[in-house]
Amino acid sequence: MPLITYRKALNEAFAEELTRDESVFLMGEEVAEYNGAYKVTEGLWERFGSKRVVDTPISEAAFLGLGVGAAMMGLRPVVELMFWSFAYVGFDQIINNAGCVRYMSGGLINVPMVIRGPANGGTNVGATHSHTPENFLANTPGLKVVAPATPYDAKGLMISSIRDNDTVCFMENTLLYGDIGEVPEGSYTIPLGVADIKREGTDISFIAHGRAVLTALAAAEILATEHGISAEVVDLRSIRPLDEEAILNSVAKTHRALLVDESKPFCGISSQIATLIAEQAFDELDAPVARVTALDAPAIYSMPLEKLQLPTAERVVAKALTLF
């Protein structure tokens, strides 16, 4: 199987869908002639032309609204945000329009749009460029939220997201764009709402999404070699819909849950999962549900401190050891 980057895996997903379905088009700041700020759309403008790969002005509210309108009229826009941090000026379009139209039209109008781009901290770009808004969006009934950790998942989930009839908020990560993994050629889909056990274990469940999955895997390796503890890593892949069964099955197997989440702890994704476990797996718990999240402060600009703000394998190991 070819080894390609996370960035290339996404690029292949776009090429597959642009070829397969004429209603699919890409747009965003610098996605066309400049090949994308992070080169995720490299070569696509040249191959598919200006009608299918569209550069936009620097106005997220405007082009997100354009995307909603196009989707309502039957097209399948894939809208790039240079950073998910820039989505906030377009929240009215995302939440009030994309998220609510199907409900408010009595199911007559769908908004089959993908909104995508990096949603991560850890790159020394400051508080206003380092948001991880998956919890805001997952809080909105009507929106779907996806956060792949690997190149394989990125391609399969992107193709599913483009084909989905609801708006999917696709959270990428600039720190993962260069990661290399095995990715099949051609088209394949990964259903939204199906988690993946990235590592089997028996003693504790690490539940994570996005890059935190890799942090959890590194921590699991340390726990196995240095402490004889077998950690299972559950990669949610999609946050809404959420694979509750996978979470509950894993907790029922290991009886301990540690949630690893790069977003903030207050009202975060991990809060939701902790609630789920407390409500539905209470009697399976042999220790309190624990979390390792970003430290609860705006993204720290100091590079050494920023590295400590996000979950690290060491923090995960240390927290895990408090549960035994």
Partner: peptide, 16 residues
């Protein structure tokens, strides 16, 4: 006080 808690401290799984 310094006396031990009157409630038995046990995990839900242990209780089950």
């Amino acid at each position: 006080g310094t006396t031990s808690s009157e409630r038995i401290k046990a995990s839900p799984l242990a209780r089950k």
